[in-house]
């Protein structure tokens, strides 16, 4: 029964990964390859754009993930209290995350044009004097990516938090109520600590997703633009292999860095989760 899965896994997962061990030691020139040992890894040390791209991944993580998780927690806490319309609200908040990355990136690209709807609206409300270069200014382009990520993933994380909150026994809150704890104290002293495993799970999936970010900077801010301001590690690797140089050896070597970082995060998660028991 397991055989078909093993065959597929070996052919399209294990074999490619093992073959990349050979790939990273070679330099591609068209169809021909030459052995260069650790040359690709030496080259990467001086690749400023790659490290900058990786820096963008960490920037997005550091700013966007905390905002999104806080927002998702607040929404979950509110929906947990609401009686009427909870199901409908949950459906609506979850909706963004079923749309394809390309579809929503295209929609956001149109909305965030310099002469587009968002700028027009902000100008009509007199919140800004002149249009913001959402897609043209490096800083704003990064902000646009983070806004888009928050739009798509907040509801997704919220659903996990809602279920986590429902699993907390009501008696704990009643006891706290009797002891005179107000809603805010209950949230920070009871809900948050008991939700820790769920929050950790969200953190890890978000971190690993942000490490692999590619579709949004490729479609929404266009090929990591403006001037590589939203270039991410994965997009840079993709472009090394398929758009710019067709240097698969170098691209594979760069992807090892992403693997190592992702594994590092996963390892930390296991440590953190393990400590709880």
């Amino acid at each position: 029964m397991i055989a078909p899965a093993i065959i597929l896994y070996t052919s399209f997962n294990l074999y490619p990964i093992l073959s990349s061990l050979n790939m990273v030691t070679r330099k591609w020139q068209g169809m021909r390859t030459t052995y260069i040992g650790l040359g690709n890894f030496a080259r990467m040390l001086n690749d400023k754009i790659f490290w900058q791209s990786l820096g963008h991944n960490f920037l997005f993580m550091g700013i966007q993930i905390p905002i999104m998780i806080m927002l998702a927690l607040v929404l979950a806490a509110i929906l947990n209290q609401v009686r009427r319309g909870r199901g409908t609200l949950r459906t609506i908040f979850f909706l963004p995350c079923v749309t394809s990355l390309v579809a929503y990136s295209v929609l956001f690209r149109m909305l965030f044009q310099t002469n587009g709807l968002l700028n027009n609206l902000l100008m009509k409300l007199e919140l800004i004097q002149s249009p913001i270069g959402w897609l043209n200014d490096p800083g704003w382009a990064r902000a646009t990516i983070m806004i888009a990520l928050t739009w798509r993933w907040t509801g997704y994380n919220m659903v996990f938090f809602i279920v986590g909150m429902q699993n907390i026994s009501n008696e704990i809150f009643e006891a706290a109520e009797v002891d005179g704890a107000n809603k805010r104290q209950q949230f920070f002293r009871i809900t948050m600590p008991l939700l820790r495993p769920v929050i950790l799970f969200s953190l890890v999936t978000s971190i690993s997703g942000t490490m692999q970010l590619l579709d949004e900077p490729n479609v929404l801010t266009w090929e990591g633009g403006p001037a590589n301001a939203t270039m991410t590690a994965a997009l840079y690797i993709y472009r090394q292999a398929f758009v710019l140089n067709s240097d698969f050896g170098y691209a594979a070597a760069l992807s090892y860095i992403v693997v190592i970082i992702t594994a590092g995060f996963a390892f930390t998660q296991m440590k953190l989760l393990g400590r709880r028991d």
Partner: peptide, 11 residues
């Protein structure tokens, strides 16, 4: 845990 970008290039 394997990032997609690391798999697709050798694939």
């Amino acid at each position: 845990m394997m990032p997609q970008i690391a798999l697709v290039i050798p694939l």
